[in-house]
Amino acid sequence: MAKQAAAKQAKKPVSRKDMSRIRWTMREIMRNKTAYVLVLPFMIIFFLFTVIPVVVSLALSLTTFNMLQWPNFIFFDNYIRLFLDDDLFIKAIQNTLIFAAVTGPVSYVLSFAVAWFINELSPKVRALVTLVFYAPSISGAVYTIWGVFFSGNAYGYVNAWLMRLGLIEEPIQWFQNAAYVMPLCIVVALWTSLGTAFLSFIAGLQIVDRSLYEAGAVDGVRNRWQELWYITLPYMRPQLMFGAIMAITGSFGFGGIVDALAGNPSVDYCAWTITHHLADYGNSRFEVGYASAISVVLFAMMFGANLLIKRLLSKLGQ
């Protein structure tokens, strides 16, 4: 025992305790120079285009910056203006929250449900069904077909059918009517939402340890629902966490669908979202300070959603 320890000492002459934390860290850094060479290129790009913009947004949101004049520091005036003096922003927040609160959870549950449904199919059939469900999320602008489906004239499939059945006299202008735009955009967003999370769930379900199911059956698991709740879901917590993050990120960035189907701006701004507001002030009016405040609010909402999900997932299987 002592010999072994001595041998170890000889190999690694300096242990963590022989020196101060700083010197030890410096030594470790020198020893792993290659590691830094390997991560550095990525980290430079990552910091330049992701981390620094976030910090800069936070700072600029407290100023009047407009790309031309030197920014004035105005504390929280931008935020006060946003929440108290900008009706369109309040509408954008409402729409964004409605959209995220519906599409996020529904697409998450749908992704898991479908992955679970197809889990016991034979591998070939499973691959085919996976393709059917996954294809809309990677097919780019193909969601514009929904615009043809719900086209505002009698040649739209939905209008044609409603008219044939005698339910309506005149074709409905689906994407020109404030009452229909949001629900329809939500449906289309859901149609395109079985993406990365879905694949992660499919893979996760495949690697659940089979012997757990047998042990569960012996221990009194009596149907597939109990099996799901007590064995599968707790076992899949890592995938569920990853999937949740993907679902949240997806549910806050859906401006493109609205623009393509309902136009920008949509009728009466009925589907106006934070992303639209952000682009309007940032890229059209160059009120960068104000736009930064908008993006900080967006950050905060995404962050809050993630904290909430973490809370909920820790309760699985209990």
């Binding site: 860290t25 850094i29 792993n32 590691a35 913009p53 947004s57 600029l60 995404m302």
Partner: peptide
Amino acid sequence: IKFPGRGWMFQMIVLSLMFSATAASIA
């Protein structure tokens, strides 16, 4: 490779997955 700093580097990458890129577009 176990090198000082890898923990927080990875943490920041995980954090970045949570935000869609639009939020950083202004800056």
